[in-house]
């Protein structure tokens, strides 16, 4: 990390260290930065490290290189990994809004907090956030065949968590909560018609959308899959899986795959 901070402005040209390409993003416009990343990706670079990132948007947008790994030091701007289909992005810092917007596949790891509208229309891949997430997270996530998106956030979430959700898995761990602090805001799962939400904490009925059911029990097979996901999450953040499994999970599910089927008259 330190050596990237040291390189300063001169190193607009990426510096190569064995298999790693290092770019100093200080004062670089997002268009130039993204252009450079795309160029490197197309040349077959497998590891790109970005230093001094400060609000540059659309990092990784539309990238499709499956073996590419990008690590970001600093704070990437909105729409990180939008439309992305394959690569892995790791952020050592906080992220802003709309991370993994309409993402198809790949993995995004955020070591800090992240903003609103994460994973909107996400169709596959994984988004792990170590800290808290904002409003409207996981809106209209959807699954298709083997593709199922997963978002796991370590802290709390704001209102409209999983709104319009059509598929995939949303997990909220509520770690390091203050006493009395709610794990999630209101209007959870409003309009949900697919997928599942797992909360490691309590939720009151009035916090949920009217389309949301609370499962009495999580089936064993499902719990196994959830545990596997959590182990992967813990691996990424060097957490102890035991710490997470000390509290039971609550499963929220949609009452119907067609919540508005009876709304219309023909």
């Amino acid at each position: 990390m330190e050596n990237i901070m040291e390189v300063g402005r001169e190193v607009l040209i990426p510096r190569r260290e064995e298999e790693k390409v290092i770019i100093d993003a200080r004062d670089v416009h997002y268009r130039d930065l993204n252009g450079q990343i795309r160029e490197l990706a197309q040349e077959g670079a497998s590891r790109i490290e970005l230093g001094n990132v400060n609000g540059q948007r659309y990092l990784g947008a539309g990238l499709t290189e499956k073996d590419l790994q990008i690590s970001i030091h600093g704070t990437p701007g909105n729409d990180l990994a939008a439309f992305m289909d394959g690569p892995r992005i790791e952020v050592f810092g906080n992220a802003q809004d709309a991370v993994s917007n309409t993402m198809n596949s790949g993995k995004v790891i955020i070591h800090g907090h992240a903003g609103d509208v994460l994973g909107y229309g996400m169709r596959g891949g994984r988004l792990y956030v170590r800290g808290n997430v904002g409003y409207r997270v996981g809106i209209h996530m959807k699954a298709y065949q083997k593709q199922a998106p997963v978002i796991i956030a370590g802290g709390t979430a704001g209102d409209f968590f999983g709104e319009y959700m059509a598929g995939g898995i949303l997990v909220l761990l509520g770690l390091e909560r203050k006493p009395e602090e709610k794990i999630v805001g209101d209007w959870v799962g409003t309009g949900i018609h697919g997928g599942a939400i797992y909360l490691r904490g309590e939720v009151e009925r009035h916090q949920l959308g009217k389309e949301v059911g609370i499962a009495e029990k999580i089936p064993d097979q499902e719990m196994k899959e959830l545990t596997a996901l959590l182990q992967d999450y813990c691996r990424e953040f060097e957490l102890d899986p035991e710490e997470i499994s000390d509290k039971p999970f609550l499963k929220l599910y949609p009452f119907s795959a067609r919540p508005y089927g009876k709304l219309y008259a023909y």
Binding site: I139, H140, Y144, A166, A257
Partner: peptide, 14 residues
């Protein structure tokens, strides 16, 4: 998935 309603929300949520 087949047979589910394809719901487009009224606004783009982003």
């Amino acid at each position: 998935p087949e047979g589910t309603d394809a719901l487009s929300p009224a606004p783009h949520h982003d």
